[in-house]
């Protein structure tokens, strides 16, 4: 174990240390304030509640590390979920095919973002803003504006079932975390994300095919949004065309709270998960304390600003 710890780079420890410290403090405070907070049931609840946003945020991490932004993930989640719902409910296709269509739609939307950015020369903000609108519109078109149900029993289990007492949404989140961690840490594309985000021109001049990597990056973000879409609909037991509305904001917030820099080149998968957990624990705790949902939004806004401010200060000193 100590050898693993020894190999962690100081820089990674630094960028992970801050948000992790914040999460621990937050949990301690919540445990003191509410007797209900620290229980397996409640903690699993937090896990289930953040699962969708966490998966979106992991995909978003690729984009933000590479110096871009993906505003479309919430809508792409909705579109992927609706395509999945249409395929299984309306077209009556077998589950694996419906799953492939749903997740594939997410990836395709991401690829389109990538093409708009590389071939179309659009800034990522604009390209994905356009997709935010278009994907939501397509979800409404495909569904006719109404929820599609009932979804097959097998997929509803994903939303409710357990694996060795661990809720399946949590299991799926952990699997996606490991995948995102591996991509960022050990794949060619992952290493390119840091290089492109840190200095795109230097990366290009070092012989990295920046356009191709961007296509891969945005496709991955769409793919993660597609998977999040399936999970979202599974939890709802119904395919809702409004699913994931404004979720992109939570996803971006989670990535940034987790220590990534919007100017690119910095960020980790574990940091993003911690960011999503901070948001989740905060919401859960405020609910337990009976804080009105209006005030919750105010508190969460303050936490986002505070988290990034302390992170910036910490980096400057470090």
């Amino acid at each position: 174990m100590s050898s693993v710890v020894g190999r962690i780079k100081p820089r990674e420890l630094l960028s992970r240390g801050g948000p992790l410290g914040g999460l621990i403090i937050l949990c301690v405070v919540m445990t003191i304030l509410s007797p209900f907070f620290l229980s397996f049931n409640n903690l699993f609840n937090v896990g289930i509640q953040i699962a969708v946003v966490a998966i979106l945020a992991l995909g978003q991490t690729f984009v933000i590390v590479s110096g871009g932004i993906d505003l479309s993930v919430g809508s792409v989640l909705g579109l992927a979920g609706i395509v999945f719902g249409w395929a299984s409910v309306v077209a009556g296709l077998p589950l694996p095919v419906a799953l492939a269509l749903g997740i594939g739609t997410g990836a395709l939307a991401g690829l389109t973002n990538g093409l708009l950015i590389t071939l179309g020369n659009l800034p990522p903000f604009i390209a994905t803003l356009a997709m935010l609108s278009a994907a939501r519109g397509l979800a409404l078109v495909v569904s006719g504006g109404v929820p599609l149900n009932p979804l097959p029993e097998a997929i509803r289990t994903l939303g409710r079932g357990d694996l060795f007492f661990i809720p399946l949404p949590v299991v799926l989140t952990l699997i996606m975390l490991v995948i995102a961690f591996g991509i960022l840490r050990s794949t060619y594309s992952g290493r390119c994300m840091y290089a492109i985000g840190g200095n795109e021109e230097a990366s290009r001049l070092s012989g990295i095919n920046v356009s191709r990597q961007k296509l891969i990056i945005y496709t991955l973000s769409g793919l993660f949004a597609g998977i999040a879409g399936i999970l979202f609909m599974a939890r709802l037991a119904s395919a809702d065309p409004q699913g994931g509305f404004t979720y992109e904001l939570d996803a971006i917030a989670a990535v940034v709270i987790g220590g990534a820099s919007l100017s690119g080149g910095v960020g980790t998968a574990s940091g993003t998960l911690i960011g999503a957990l901070i948001l989740g624990v905060l919401r859960n705790g405020l609910n337990l304390l009976n804080v009105s949902s209006f005030w919750q939004q105010v508190v969460i806004g303050a936490v986002i600003a505070l988290a990034v401010m302390t992170d910036t200060l910490r980096r400057r000193k470090g």
Partner: peptide, 15 residues
């Protein structure tokens, strides 16, 4: 155009 400032010496060498 030469270095990637936020990355480590090792990663810059390997670029």
């Amino acid at each position: 155009q030469g270095i990637v400032p936020p990355l480590s010496v090792e990663e810059n060498l390997s670029l």
